[in-house]
Simulated assay, not measured.
Amino acid sequence: MSMNLYPFSKYDLRQIAKLPSDISALAEKYPCEIINVADAIDDDPFPDGYIPHIFEIYYGTSDNANIYIVDGVLQDYNVPEFDGNTPSVSILFDGNFAYIEVEGKELLNKLGGAVLPHVTINPSTLIEILTRGVSHD
């Protein structure tokens, strides 16, 4: 596999080489996602009844969480528009990768027995989310 398009470190290349070939073949197109899969592949699934304190969802190559929930309260919701399905989805529980999907294919699933929190929305957060991008000309 040629890794010319992305500057992978020697450590990254060793980690990627441990992955199944159908996953490692996606490394040039989805370098961050594949490195995250490689780093989390040996982690244990979340235990039964685990409720994450911090729940983050990233779509595509977003730098910040598109959905960010802390202790069951929605802190941010900023989902980009895509033509068709999002190219990738990454879910983190308390800073640990729980799920990664690329092009509709599940690459990592450590959800185990985790329970998604009941989500509430603070009214001021809701107003801020709803008014994003609204021009006041």
Results as ranks from 00 to 15, higher is better:
residue 5 L to C: 12
residue 6 Y to V: 15
residue 7 P to S: 11
residue 9 S to P: 12
residue 14 R to P: 00
residue 17 A to T: 03
residue 22 D to T: 06
residue 25 A to W: 01
residue 25 A to M: 11
residue 26 L to M: 12
residue 29 K to A: 15
residue 30 Y to S: 02
residue 31 P to W: 00
residue 35 I to N: 06
residue 35 I to R: 14
residue 37 V to H: 07
residue 37 V to N: 07
residue 38 A to R: 12
residue 45 P to G: 00
residue 47 P to S: 07
residue 47 P to K: 13
residue 47 P to G: 01
residue 50 Y to C: 04
residue 55 F to C: 11
residue 57 I to T: 11
residue 58 Y to W: 06
residue 60 G to L: 07
residue 63 D to F: 10
residue 64 N to V: 14
residue 66 N to K: 01
residue 67 I to A: 04
residue 68 Y to T: 03
residue 70 V to M: 09
residue 73 V to M: 11
residue 76 D to Y: 02
residue 77 Y to L: 14
residue 79 V to H: 10
residue 84 G to N: 06
residue 85 N to E: 12
residue 85 N to P: 09
residue 89 V to M: 07
residue 90 S to N: 05
residue 92 L to T: 11
residue 96 N to A: 09
residue 98 A to W: 05
residue 99 Y to W: 09
residue 99 Y to H: 14
residue 100 I to P: 06
residue 100 I to Q: 04
residue 102 V to T: 06
residue 104 G to D: 01
residue 106 E to L: 13
residue 107 L to P: 08
residue 107 L to E: 03
residue 110 K to E: 04
residue 110 K to C: 04
residue 110 K to T: 03
residue 111 L to Y: 06
residue 114 A to I: 13
residue 116 L to H: 11
residue 117 P to Q: 08
residue 119 V to I: 15
residue 123 P to R: 11
residue 125 T to E: 08
residue 125 T to Q: 14
residue 126 L to N: 08
residue 127 I to W: 04
residue 130 L to T: 10
residue 136 H to Q: 10
residue 137 D to R: 10
residue 137 D to G: 15
residue 137 D to S: 13
